[in-house]
Design a protein around this nucleic acid. Sequence first.
DNA 1: TACGGTTTGTTTAGTCCTGAACTAAGGGGA
DNA 2: TCCCCTTAGTTCAGGACTAAACAAACCGTA
Lengths: 415, 415
Amino acid sequence: MSRPMARSDVNRSAILAHLGAHGPASRAELARALAVSPALMTQLTKDLIADGLISEREQQASQGGRPARMLGLVAEAGRAVGVKVAADHVAFVEVGIDGGVVRTASEPFEAASTTMLTELVGLLRRFIDGGADTPLLGIGVGVPGEVDAQASGVVNSTQLGWRNAPIGDTLRRELRMPVLVENNVNALAMAERLYGLGQRHRSFLVVTIGTGVGAAIVIDGLVVRGTSGGAGEIGHIPVRETGPVCSCGGIGCLETFVGEAGLVRTARERGVIGASAGIAALRSAAASGDAAAVAVFEEAGHLLGRTLAGLVHALDPEIIIVLGEGTADWEHWSFGFEPAFRAALMASRRGLPVAVESWQDDSWAQGAATLVLATPFDAEGLAGEQGDLVRQRLVTQAGVAGDGASGSASPGGAR
Amino acid sequence: MSRPMARSDVNRSAILAHLGAHGPASRAELARALAVSPALMTQLTKDLIADGLISEREQQASQGGRPARMLGLVAEAGRAVGVKVAADHVAFVEVGIDGGVVRTASEPFEAASTTMLTELVGLLRRFIDGGADTPLLGIGVGVPGEVDAQASGVVNSTQLGWRNAPIGDTLRRELRMPVLVENNVNALAMAERLYGLGQRHRSFLVVTIGTGVGAAIVIDGLVVRGTSGGAGEIGHIPVRETGPVCSCGGIGCLETFVGEAGLVRTARERGVIGASAGIAALRSAAASGDAAAVAVFEEAGHLLGRTLAGLVHALDPEIIIVLGEGTADWEHWSFGFEPAFRAALMASRRGLPVAVESWQDDSWAQGAATLVLATPFDAEGLAGEQGDLVRQRLVTQAGVAGDGASGSASPGGAR
DNA sequence: TACGGTTTGTTTAGTCCTGAACTAAGGGGA
DNA sequence: TCCCCTTAGTTCAGGACTAAACAAACCGTA
């Protein structure tokens, strides 16, 4: 009993998110990290402990003063689901409130089908029902393409063949659950910011290589979405005056040279692989030391390096993080990438770190899940009303999802 | 008497800045614009009127309800000085609190001289002393190069030959006055945001063409400074695999083709102008219809167009604003720019507006001055302690500048 | 000309949060 | 061992701000 009638929910959930992202922390630490006074932190944590959302842990050894009494999340406080949508399949991930993966699944899925919306709802429903009994905070969906806004979720994607697909609204209505939709690379960038290298950097670039080439731009801790949610489309930066026509209609786009299709085309033209062979053949050829195959990757690395150098001059980030299925071959890319990238940078930036991270199959979906867990950090309201709903669920352990169009955000009594 | 011991200075000065930027407004309008409650606005404006900083104007015709009682700045509330530093001269501008130019001056100045710091102090002191009697809020300095932080003001500039020049600290100490230093293009972008096209756009690019090529990036209303204050260096984006060596050490940099020196070099190589002729000769040749001269500009426009298209793909801005001395020849540039730029964009962005603004000689200095006037909008503390000092002067009509190293921000009694 | 609709501005009660002073609990040096 | 230093956490008075109700001033319209 004695719910103190919800203090500042924003701060309450920010505390929970911080503990989830960085592990247990002392009150003083939290106050510093969230830029509030220690006094307030005392009050808020008192409430959270009373509500059973966090608990006091053992003391930590003193660092010259009074030892800190650590606070940690009560693990059962919540879970989130992430969905990766691709042209031919969807991948699901269930994560705990600490970001750790609990459960995964993958299902065939025809994105271009006319019934894909009901299909998606059914698959998601089945995955959710198989989950734990802890409260589900929300669903994050990562898609390759432009998303108008996380809280709305209208998607345009040439890769999926979607034009103004109302993913967000449909899922919200059918599942009665907060749903956040975002470009998949942007979602990945938020994951890096919360759990990865981004924790220690205010501004960075996340670059993905694979079927296509994408990027997400994080400036001062905020993901740049652009006017129409289409920022980061570095695959269509023009890098040559001539070349094959790109899917975007342009000529000389980066992606036509360094995307998977571009690599395969180049390799075929040069007879490195057979006329009907694919990326797998090119990979194995390079792996077995075929110089011509390695050269294909090397040249792609060269082009990527010069392009990224241009972006570095424009944005002056602290680090570049390279991700994606394509990083498996980075060994070969780097022969071209490193010299081209470094040479094109001005002297003062030549030492810019480039981190190439290993890639797992669930990474995309995991990134999508962090859309939900990142909500409390969402200072400028990227997630909008949906973010508020997630926060409500987080702090009250109950709360009912808005029902479709502008659902009245009823507080929802204690369960 | 009866100074109410300074309420929220941030909000007080935000009101003043809004009135300065957008002209007189009603209380209700201000409350909406600054996202505070009407109740608070009543209180704050009462204080500001009592302090003589703003005054009530005539009523405005009703718009269906009670007519608004407009509030306007008391013009004498303050002034700011802007300085443009170039290699061979400095330009000064004095602006009123509404951003209007009051007075200008230009003096020869040897930036590479060893005594340049004392020189600059002397010139500035003379300019300031000639000004009006209204309180001087601060000094904004625009430089071509990297600035570590506005509030610090350590400058690195190849154009000026400065390495770690402590401009900010020196001026602060000598003039006992808040001083804000910023890259000149970034300063220009802030001016656009406050008084220009940026008022109606959240994200935009400001591109300057002239001696060099520069850009400033504004995302969601915030100027992107980058890790070391060096964002926007689009002049060094690599655009060709071959070409002359750039001042940055790179090869194929945009600036080596479309900067003034690059244009002149190309024109000389082709015999369009004499081997010792300069940009003026190229200009007049193009103006008189010389096809080869026009082609030089056209090709520059082509390269700039493709490069900016790449940036648009990466950042997805709402508009591009082109400025700088070079816009005088834009008529010729556009022959190459428009087709190259539009063709390289994906279909959904092909209609992106590009605004080419006329250019006056004081524009750089005027941009620098708005560094000071923009302080109240400085939500994320770009201007730091110096911004606080400006705010103090604005709201108290007095206040003494910090004296060099971490001056204690003493409130300073009424004058 | 009475009445609802609309927008502006003010008052009041109460919430959120901070600053300052304080207690608590350790470490290390003379 | 005593004293000073440092860090952690709490209490309390008070300031900034808001929500909600209300008053003011105009518009239409029936």
